[in-house]
Structures are given as C-alpha cells and as structure tokens.
C-alpha cells in the first residue's frame, strides 16, 4: 500500500478496525499530553522565530539606507558648522537627503535616559544630522575625508557598527527558534515512538489474536498508527490553541519594534499556527508506522 493510500485510509478511518486496539492505556494518554505540551512550546518557538525574523528584516531595511553625522563644537560655532556639513552632504553623490535634527527631536532621543524635563539647551549636546542615501549609495570613506577637511568635529556614523551585530543576533535567534521547532518535532516523534513501542508490547496478546484470525501486518499497523496519529493531532491542536491564546494575551507595550513587543503573530502569520498540529500528526504518523513495522517484524 502506497504512502498516499495510507494517508487516505488514515483520514477515512474505519471504526471497526480502530476498535480492535484497546481504547485506553498509559501510552495513549502520554501521547496526548506530550503532543499538547510540545505544540504549546512550538507556538512560542514559532512566534519568537517570526518576531526576530521580522525585527531583523525591519532594522536591516530601515537602517541600511540611513546614516548620522555628529558635530561636536562650541555652541557659538554650531550653526555655521551644521550649515557647512549640510552643504557637503547635499553636494555628495549618493546622498538623497540630509537634515539637521531639531532640538525637540534631539531631546526626544535623550528622553529615555534623562527624562522629559531635560534642559537640553544647557548641555553641550552634539548636533545630529540625519542623512538618507540613494539606492546606489555613497562613498562613506570619501565623505568622511571631506567632512574631516571642511567641517572640523564632524563624524560620520553609518550605523554599521551596531547594526551588523544586532541584525546578526536577530538572525541567529531566528535560526535558534527554527532549530527549537525541529527539536520539538524530533522530541515529539521520539516520545510517540516510545509510546507506540510500549503500546505494541502491551498489546502483544491482541496482536497474536489478530494474526490468528488472519490479520495482515498492514491492518494491525494501521490500527495503531491511526490511534497514535489522531491522539497526536488532538493533543497538538489543544496545545496550539492554548499557546496561541497565551500569545494573544501577552501584555502590549507602547514601544514598537522591540523584541519583547514583537513576539506574536500578525495578520496572516497566525496561519503558521495551523501547521503545528499538521506537523505533529505527520511526525506521529511516521514514528508510529516505523515503530509498528519494527515491532511486528520482531513479534513474527
């Protein structure tokens, strides 16, 4: 019987054939519980993976085309130097736009550290200029040399210093999330295999009776495979539902774009949750099928 036929049989089901395997047992309950717990964890691993992927992509995209020029000078010289820097930037090929941040914007940047009542005018805060590059980009080294020559105290920061490790870290967390999903699927398949082995061993008498009355190995295996696959499916559906609810109920935070607030599913990404029970059922199907074949060969 081909794999496709086996899947078709599994979905179609046969109540009478299902009944030949005793309905209860520790192994069946264990499968249900393990599938539920693993699916619950899988929801979080999936959410983390999607969130870090999304954040990495967002940071990478947003920061790749921006840079900052920082001017450190005495307050009296600052307007002239800012104007000079803007002139240099606007005349540089590859720079789409450049603008000096207003005192309010600079104050907002410092607010998380110093609070909202910061007297920024009284502090020797450097002037920041935000520049946006064209798709072709600019020559960072050339721009640094020009700024160094024409605007003393101006430093070009293309964000690469801290962007690269952040993006790298996000990508690694994403990879770890995916690895966790694989491990969860593997652990579940392993547990289902153990449970199936235990169930097959515990039902050696049942198998002997079935063989005595002319049951083929495929019939016996199918009865066990269907039992465990459906248990894993129900367990993982419950676990997925509870995991999704827990994600949904995570408290929201005002700041967007951070890892903590980003954990979760947005829009169509919720559909990814539907794959968890399907993957769990498939893992259970193949694990039980292999265990049943091996066990029935051993009992022959």
């Amino acid at each position: 019987m081909s794999l496709l036929d086996q899947f078709r049989d599994l979905l179609r089901g046969d109540v009478r054939a299902d009944r030949v395997v005793p309905p209860s047992g520790m192994a069946a309950r264990l499968t249900l519980a393990v599938a539920g717990a693993m699916a619950f964890l899988a929801v979080f691993a999936l959410a983390l993976s999607l969130a870090t992927g999304r954040i990495a992509s967002q940071w990478s995209h947003e920061l790749t085309r921006t840079a900052t020029v920082r001017i450190t000078a005495a307050p009296a010289e600052m307007p002239a130097l800012t104007e000079a820097a803007l002139r240099v930037l606007r005349s540089t090929e590859g720079v789409e736009s450049a603008r000096a941040l207003t005192p309010e914007e600079q104050k907002a940047l410092l607010e998380p550290w110093f609070g909202s009542d910061l007297p920024i005018e009284a502090l020797p805060v450097p002037q920041l200029i935000e520049l946006r590059e064209t798709r072709a980009g600019y020559d960072a080294e050339g721009l640094r040399l020009r700024l160094g020559a024409e605007v003393p105290g101006a430093v070009l920061d293309d964000h690469g210093r801290w962007r690269r490790p952040v993006v790298q870290a996000s990508q690694r967390i994403r990879a770890l999330g995916l690895l966790s999903l694989l491990l969860i699927a593997g652990v579940m398949a392993g547990m289902v295999t153990l449970a199936a082995h235990a169930a097959l061993s515990a039902n050696a008498q049942v198998i002997a009776v079935l063989r005595l009355v002319g049951a083929r190995d495929a019939f016996i295996a199918r009865a066990f495979v269907r039992r465990f696959t459906l248990r894993a499916l129900w367990g993982s559906m419950t676990g997925t539902f509870l995991g999704a609810m827990a994600i949904l109920l995570l408290p929201g935070m005002p700041t967007e774009g951070t890892l903590l607030t980003g954990i979760g599913f947005h829009g169509a990404a919720w559909l990814w949750c539907l794959t968890i029970p399907l993957v769990a059922a498939m893992a259970a199907f193949f694990a039980t099928r292999a265990a049943a074949r091996r066990n029935l060969r051993g009992l022959a």
């Binding site: 009944r19 030949v20 005793p22 309905p23 049942v206 009776v209 079935l210 009355v213 002319g214």
Partner: peptide, 17 residues
C-alpha cells in the same frame, strides 16, 4: 479473545480483519 470487544464483535473479528 479481545476482552474489550463484545462476544459478537469477537466472533466477527475475522470478517473485520
């Protein structure tokens, strides 16, 4: 016999398999 099945189901077992 399969103790979890009724007598009629046990007798019908060869048909089922």
């Amino acid at each position: 016999f399969l103790d979890h099945l009724s007598l009629a189901e046990n007798i019908a077992l060869p048909l089922t398999v």
